[in-house]
Design a protein around this nucleic acid. Structure first.
Lengths: 150, 150
DNA sequence: CCAATATAGTTTGTAATACATACCAATTCA
DNA sequence: TGAATTGGTATGTATTACAAACTATATTGG
């Protein structure tokens, strides 16, 4: 069942939500872009650090998370490795596979980025009261949890 | 007052909201990117169409909305104009100024994109119940309204 | 009133990112 | 075991955005 087919939403209500999501996404991506560039990272590299923070992934799985082509990821990971943020480890079970994981330095960087992001997003977040912030977090987590491509 | 300084939020609660916003942004941008590329538009061109849907802007103001350099916008608008989606109009009050506005075709395209976006975002949206969707829309609108860079 | 300065936009050259294609090595399957 | 599949890399290309230099118009201070 699509959102529009659910009963009880006025015509246009879904569009307004969709619109608000899109606008919020652009504002948020603006913050993320600034955060990345202030740290000499590309947006995608930033994302890789965030993803690998609590996972070790093979190239193919990382590609799936990012929605990129594997040929793109080769260079991306190569640059991040050259900067000492990640390492490529040959997988002993399947010698074709390359596992990617954060270095200590990568973890430090990822932790700092997470901390700093709060500041960059503050204009958006702090315009909500505490209760609203909790409600928003709850709703977003719910939506993401049941979304396949999250 | 930053979000963290507000009383009554547990340590970490703001981080979780920030994290959820970032993840939601990536999922939403994924949908927007697919929507754009399915219509042979760049993400930024898509955004220009959305912005100009209810505004006529000069180049400089459009640059401010987009957060790009003006030199970037020149080519962007030139390509969109070549496709018949926008027109550049000399401003009679100040002959340095170029106003940009949607063509009829641009309006048709923008309307269709808005309609289609709902489908692309449905996996995210439809995982919420009606009441939750309304609540989310309300919260996002509130947050955006008081955000300077929206 | 005019010279100096500021503003609006374009042009040109360059760097970064992502894609497609072709390719190699290792694994699986029939 | 040979053929097909999978995991990843290398290479060439297109797109996007930026910076710096430039043109044209407008504004402002003397």
């Amino acid at each position: 069942m699509t959102a529009r087919e659910q009963e009880g939403n006025a015509i246009g209500a879904t569009d307004e939500l969709v619109d608000a999501l899109a606008q919020t996404a652009f504002v948020t991506m603006g913050a993320l872009t600034r955060l990345a560039s202030d740290n000499d990272l590309s947006l995608t590299q930033l994302r890789v650090l965030a993803i690998l923070r609590d996972r070790r992934l093979r190239m193919t799985d990382l590609v799936a998370y990012l929605g990129l082509e594997k040929s793109t990821l080769t260079g991306l990971v190569a640059r991040a490795e050259a900067r000492g943020l990640v390492v490529r480890v040959a997988n002993p079970d399947d010698r074709r596979v390359v596992d990617v994981t954060l270095t200590d330095e990568g973890h430090v960087m990822a932790a700092r980025l997470t901390k700093d992001l709060a500041g960059y997003l503050d204009p958006l977040v702090s315009s909500l009261k505490n209760g609203e912030q909790r409600a928003l977090r709850e709703l977003l987590v719910t939506a993401l949890r049941t979304t396949p491509t999250a």
